[in-house]
Design a protein around this nucleic acid. Sequence first.
RNA 1: GGAGAGGUGCCGGAGCCUGGUUGAUCGGGGCGCCCUGCUAAGGCGUUGUGGGCCGCAAGGUUCACCGUGGGUUCAAAUCCCACCCUCUCCGCCA
Length: 426
Amino acid sequence: MLDIRRVRTELDVVRAGLVRKGVDTREVDHLAEVDARHRRLAAQRDTLRAQVNQVSKEVGRLRRAGDSAGAEARMAWSRQVGERERALAAEADALAVEVRELLLRIPNLPADDAPDGAGEADNVVVRVEGPDPAAYGEHQRVPHWDVGAELGILDLERGAKLSGSMFPLYRGAGARLVRALTAWALDRHADAFEELRPPSLVRTETITASGQLPKFADDAYHLERDDLWAIPTAEVPLTSVAAGEVLAEADLPLRLTAATPCFRREAGSAGRDTRGLLRVHEFDKVEILAYATPEQAQDVHAELLARAEGLLGELGLAYRVLDICTGDLGQTQARQFDLEVYAPGCDQWLEVSSVSWFGDYQARRADVRYRRREDARVAFVHTLNGSALAWPRIWATLVETGRRPDGSVELPQALAPWLGGSTKLA
RNA sequence: GGAGAGGUGCCGGAGCCUGGUUGAUCGGGGCGCCCUGCUAAGGCGUUGUGGGCCGCAAGGUUCACCGUGGGUUCAAAUCCCACCCUCUCCGCCA
């Protein structure tokens, strides 16, 4: 969430940032107004409380001195003041709740250097790497759902039988490929990242901290009976690992990685890109995440991007890097790069990673702070994360890209050690 | 799931029964100063977070915080209720 003090002291700057994101500023104007009302009432309440506190101490003194008449008089007076105090407090509390709710809904401001734009179409292609998409052969122009069925490695019908459409079932070498990708990516990050295996179900508090709630509750699976949420990304548990804690600056940047299943209802995207593995309700993903100081954030962001990109390079896939424009940034992001791979069979660029910088927006929600070496004060950390990588679309692209004229599939040599030495699917 | 014990400041650990000058005793750690050729030991001091208001600032003042949220009371770390978490035992179980 935003720093309420910025809303108070530089409302025009905040408003300008939200405008760049294409967000209606009425909500933040309303917030400023409610906050002012809350402060006014809270100040009055505190004044009354101070009086009650003082008189209560007097009561104690008088009682010890044996002056019960004096004590009674003070108590009667305090009862009356207390009544007014309670009325004010109730009003002030209601306003405080409203402030909090508004803060949780108002998006993060974009970074100064995020490109301006209204939406997806204005994202900037920073670079295109790997093979030339136009140069793929005819044998590679077969969509992965066909390749998967031919080779018996992807069984969408039976996946649907079990759980409904968009719940894929991988089989045999296809299942093994998912496992290999996960193990390979985790091993690739092991040099600098601590591997975590977090829970896949989290409390409301946890999924609120990273920003998916309250605004996007419809996109997440909720187990009502236990009031737990199925994580849509490992970002959710990893962001809250340090919730409520004060980290030492010497430990920053703190780098974490985790492979988890990810669950998404895809409520708003029914019918879009639903073929095969393009959009699924459950998938595996390896996430990399860092807590950093504000000074480190930019470098760490570049590092995460380089990590995710490095994996795509090792797989030999055609990909491009997008600098996400202000209008396409998510609620929580200040700056974001997306990685898209080119899948020759579908003839589409598929988003397989999103590498984001959140400033202190998530850290404020999760209350993750660090003690600064310089002056020993505590301050909010910055959070950053990226997918490295999300497997279904990588799986699809590998299968399409690796398809040979005889219908078999050759996977990248880089994966050989994780595939038991055999990179051929037939 | 059942029974019991417990959650206090950076850490350990009092206070809770018997509500009141307790933001909280004491010990350890950290920090500063003194002592010292250096180190150890010792001495003295200091050491939470968040918000409001005043102030250019230093600072002053006030409110809140003893797992979380409610309640009782003039007054709650202390009493009552609910929830969360930890530990021990029992049950169940991959």
